[in-house]
Simulated scan of single mutants.
Amino acid sequence: MSLKNDITHIASAHKKFFVSLLIVFVPILYLLSGFYSVGQEQRAIVTQLGKVIEDNVMPGMHYHLPWPFEKVQKLTSTSLRSISIDFSEGAQKFIQPELTTGDGNLVTVALEVQYNVSEPSVFYNAALDAEAVLQQIARAETLYYVGGNGFESVLTTGRTRFQNYIKNAIQSYTHQYQLGLRITSVQIKRLEPPLSIKKGFDKVAAARSEKQKLIQDARGERSTQLAKARSEANKTKLNAQAYAKEATEKALGDHERFIALLEAYNESPDITIQRQYIEQVEQVMSRAKISIVKPELVVKE
């Protein structure tokens, strides 16, 4: 007997058993298909015949009525997403890739918008492609800001203000259009003049940097010279004060000696004169050089 005949024979002999097995296990498998899991960085939306019945299912194991009654849509909501906007890429032939500033100059701009899904159900139902809407909003606001500000402001001092404006403006429109997104940051990846004028702009920027460097060097040299002059002035002042003190003390000492000598002279003029004479001789002789010559060495005329 062949294998095929064996299988046919067993199926025929146990037909009721297999039918009962299918009747029991198929519904069980169908019901078990309703279990689903949500990851740590995910949120789930459960719809029943197209209507949202649960809009923010948290991570873990959950259950829903199997298809076609209910459907589960999982969204990565907590992780950070980003879109890049580069006006120089993908521009049509009749549209220039640069943006025009408020004073008529040209700049090339590239941005990166970072965001996450703050309201999964709103994001799921807001638009067919909410991220495409977000990109169009970012492009429109960038054009509006660059067109309303001058060249120098956009490229130099206004970069941080530019980023903050774009972030706040996009967030405002996402709330207005109910996209369910939260903008975390806007980063400028490229903001510079076109290559055709970049060399001239770089020279201007280099000259500005050199000017600031010269100013800083001059201020540093000025500070050094002022500190040196103050030090010299203090030194001269201290020397003058020391000299004045020494001269004053010397004058006071001479005055006291003179008064004492005058009093001694009034009491004993002869003795005082003789003592002064001896002291003067001693002072002179202490500085005098004395040479003793033998008499026989003296040449007589």
Rank of each mutant, 00 (worst) to 15 (best):
A140Q: 13
L143I: 07
T142W: 05
A138I: 01
R161A: 15
A140I: 01
Y144C: 00
A169M: 11
R161M: 10
L155K: 09
T157W: 05
G150W: 12
I166R: 06
A169H: 09
G158W: 03
Q163S: 15
A140C: 02
N168G: 08
Y145V: 05
Y165A: 07
T160F: 10
G148H: 14
G148Y: 01
Y165S: 06
G147V: 05
F151E: 06
G150E: 13
Q163H: 05
I166E: 10
Q135R: 14
G150F: 09
E141W: 02
E152M: 07
L143T: 00
L143F: 11
G158C: 07
N168R: 14
A169P: 09
G150T: 13
Y145N: 04
N168V: 10
R139V: 01
T156G: 04
G150A: 12
I166C: 05
V154P: 00
T156V: 10
Y165L: 09
G150Y: 07
E141T: 00
I137F: 04
A140T: 06
L155N: 10
T156I: 09
R161C: 01
V154Q: 04
G150H: 06
K167H: 08
V154E: 11
I166M: 07
G158R: 07
V146E: 09
V146F: 07
Q136K: 11
Q136M: 12
Y165F: 15
T160C: 02
E152T: 06
V154W: 01
T160Y: 12
R161E: 15
Q135H: 04
N149W: 02
Q135V: 06
K167E: 14
R139Q: 15
Q163G: 04
Q136N: 14
Y165N: 11
Q163W: 09
A169E: 15
F162N: 04
G158L: 02
T156C: 06
N168I: 09
R159E: 12
G150Q: 12
V146R: 01
A138G: 03
T142A: 10
R139Y: 08
V146G: 04
I166A: 04
Y165D: 12
T156Q: 12
Y144E: 13
G147N: 11
I166P: 02
G147Y: 06
G147D: 11
I137N: 02
N164S: 14
V146M: 13
G147E: 12
F151H: 10
I137V: 14
L143V: 02
Q163T: 12
F162G: 03
V154H: 01
R161F: 09
N149V: 05
E141K: 04
G148R: 15
G147T: 04
Q135D: 07
G158S: 12
E141R: 08
Q136I: 05
L155E: 06
G150K: 03
T157F: 06
I137D: 04
T142M: 09
L155T: 05
N168S: 13
A138N: 08
Y165I: 07
L155A: 05
T156S: 10
F151G: 01
I166S: 07
T157I: 10
I137T: 05
Y145C: 07
R161H: 13
N168L: 11
Q135T: 08
Q135K: 14
N168H: 06
T160G: 02
V146N: 00
T156A: 13
R159W: 01
A138V: 03
F151A: 03
G148Q: 15
Q135F: 00
T156H: 08
E141L: 03
G147F: 08
Q135P: 00
T157V: 13
S153A: 10
L143N: 09
L143R: 10
Q163I: 03
N164I: 08
